[in-house]
């Protein structure tokens, strides 16, 4: 269970460029919740994910994950509990290392890295099986440098790395935005599959309203650093893009100014 309590974050505080990114966000995710997050540019969606991941500290408020207060925990220590996939497919994997080496690092996330071999034969067999589930033919390319893969392949691999040791929380930060529509659909389907099979708790930021409605069991909308809509269950299933736009206009007092979301 993830609990955000009154999270505030201002960038460049005290300067003319001060930007309130999160303005008192309170949110509770129950175990198994798959929440999609939408909102205009600068609404605070990515900031919220980065705050949870520990990329930057909060100004005030607390973050608890499974009853553990992780507010002060550095990013690399939170990785024990949290799996992440980034918007840029280049971010989630090490380009200069082989596929199996990337997987080995992910497999040891949150564990001690000692002087044993990075990969054992037994692990290699297991990795091959896992890669088969991606259905991209990567199981025969264990010793290929990740830098040689396409963006979609790298994003699928990152997804596998993020979910393979059953994290308490999975953070997907517009992880299909940089992919072409067909590849994006494949990666989204894989995300659904891993989340369902692993019974994972997940937060997925997206710019695509249709995706936000079609995936997950709960949807939140953000504007100006606040959560302005939180729907789940049957109510969410009944949502339409038009209804969302209307809600946005009502709650924020402005039009939803984002071409990408409108056109999607």
């Amino acid at each position: 269970m993830l609990q955000l309590n009154e999270i505030r974050k201002t960038f460049n505080a005290g300067t003319v460029n001060a930007k309130v990114a999160l303005d008192g966000v309170t949110l509770t995710l129950n175990d198994g919740d798959f929440v999609t997050v939408i909102g205009g540019n600068g609404a605070g969606k990515s900031t919220m994910l980065n705050i949870v991941a520990g990329t930057y500290p909060v100004d005030s408020g607390t973050i608890r994950l499974d009853e553990e207060d992780i507010t002060a925990l550095p990013e690399y220590k939170r990785a024990r509990l949290i799996g992440r996939v980034f918007q840029d497919p280049m971010t989630g994997t090490a380009a200069d290392m082989w596929i199996e080496e990337n997987l080995a690092i992910a497999a040891r996330r949150g564990k001690r890295h000692g002087l044993g071999w990075a990969i054992t034969q037994k692990e290699r067999v297991a990795y091959r099986e896992m890669l088969k589930s991606l259905d991209l033919g990567l199981e025969d390319r264990l010793s290929t440098k990740v830098g040689l893969l396409s963006g979609g392949q790298r994003q699928a691999l990152t997804l596998l790395m993020a979910t393979m040791n059953h994290p308490k929380l999975l953070l997907l930060d517009e992880h299909t935005a940089a992919l072409d529509p067909k590849t994006a659909a494949n990666v989204l389907a894989l995300s659904d599959k891993f989340i369902e099979e692993g019974k994972l708790t997940a937060l997925m930021v997206t710019h695509n309203m249709k995706d936000a409605i079609a995936h997950g069991n709960r949807l939140i909308m953000m504007n100006a650093g606040r959560i302005i809509l939180d729907v789940s269950g049957e109510e969410k299933k009944a949502l339409t893009v038009d209804a969302l736009l209307e809600t946005f206009a009502k709650a924020s007092g402005t039009e939803f100014a984002n071409d990408r979301a409108l056109l999607a």
Binding site: A53, E75, Y76, K77, A79, R80, R84, F86, M90, T91, G92, T93, A94, A95, D96, M97, E101, A104, I105, A106, R108, R109, G110, K111, H113, A118, M161
Partner: peptide, 17 residues
């Protein structure tokens, strides 16, 4: 391997603990 990963992609390395 963690040293190599750090040199290759620091953000990924931190996200991987």
């Amino acid at each position: 391997a963690t040293i190599r990963a750090t040199g290759s992609n620091e953000r990924m390395s931190r996200a991987q603990g």
